[in-house]
């Protein structure tokens, strides 16, 4: 039935928008620093915890949380680059990747120690009456997540692509030595890229908190789809990351609704393998591949 499919589609778009926001931060860091940041899910989780603290303990309004949480998580992310990853920047890429994996685990357990709870919950931004479109029902929370996360993802992509701040990161992504010769500071650009990427992760955490709950498990729950979304998009493509997130969200729900609910998690891995084997450059690669 069409209405069933529309319900599945809206559900997919809602979670796909969060995946997209998660993926875009991952891509920003990778584009500028060539680091695959496996701690990105932990930064999203941190964003959700900051949301909980600011809303529930400090009783701040949501608009303040949308400003403060990305800023704080961005600062933590920049600090991690400065304190942990900078000293090993010239090491083998494998070591850097392993460092981000263990950073993720350390951050996850660091929040679990003082807050060893089943699940923390925060209220939705908008809790009014849902929108009825015939038989289709869309809550204000879903509308805000789909529109808001999508909007912020596009803004993040524009910041990287258009603004002067993004120019330095793009220059570094093209050629580190060339960028240095043009006067860009490697250290400055790296810290800035981690701040922007971490800020986007923090924002994804704010959007995730009411829909996915606040728990240490959010780390794994977000890094996997964000990573798959980034791979679908080509890993260096901001536009691809956004579309990859939306595609993944929809496919997960379609598979769960029409094949088996148990396939929901497995589908992301199937997509990951399929893309890596059939089209490793992703569906929306930024650069052009030429056969020579």
């Amino acid at each position: 039935m069409l209405i069933d499919f529309l319900f599945v589609l809206v559900g997919g778009l809602k979670f796909g928008a969060i995946y997209a926001l998660g993926a875009i931060g991952l891509v920003v860091i990778h584009k500028a620093t060539k680091t695959v940041n496996f701690a990105h899910g932990a930064l999203i989780m941190l964003g959700a915890y900051v949301t909980f603290f600011l809303l529930e303990l400090f009783k701040l309004p949501y608009w303040a949380v949308y400003v403060l949480a990305p800023t704080l998580v961005g600062a933590v992310s920049a600090f991690l680059e400065f304190a942990i990853l900078r000293p090993i920047r010239r090491a083998d890429m494998f070591i850097v990747i392993i460092a981000t994996v263990f950073l993720a685990i350390a951050l996850q357990e660091a929040v679990r120690l003082p807050y060893d709870v089943e699940m923390l919950a925060v209220a939705a931004v908008l809790e009014g009456d849902p929108l009825f479109l015939g038989d289709l029902i869309i809550t204000q929370e879903s509308m805000w997540i789909i529109a808001g996360a999508f909007l912020f993802a596009i803004l993040g992509a524009l910041l990287f692509a258009q603004a002067g701040l993004g120019r330095s990161m793009r220059a570094m992504a093209q050629n580190i030595r060339g960028a240095q010769l043009c006067g860009y500071s490697v250290d400055g650009v790296y810290v800035f890229a981690w701040f922007v990427g971490g800020g986007l992760a923090g924002l994804a955490g704010v959007f995730s908190a009411p829909s996915l709950g606040v728990s240490p498990e959010l780390m794994v729950a977000t890094i996997v789809p964000a990573f798959v979304a980034a791979v679908i998009g080509g890993f260096d493509s901001l536009r691809g990351a956004i579309l990859g997130g939306l595609i993944l969200g929809i496919l997960e729900n379609v598979a769960a609704a029409y094949i088996s609910a148990g396939l929901k998690s497995a589908i992301s891995f199937l997509i990951l393998f399929a893309v890596l084997m059939i089209r490793p450059e992703g569906l929306f690669p930024e650069g052009r591949v030429r056969k020579v």
Partner: peptide
């Protein structure tokens, strides 16, 4: 009878089946 993953958060699939 819908089986879900422990830790699942997006409940669209079981809920669409229940609604039907």
């Amino acid at each position: 009878v819908e089986e879900i993953d422990s830790g699942a958060r997006d409940m669209t699939a079981p809920l669409v089946a229940i609604a039907k």
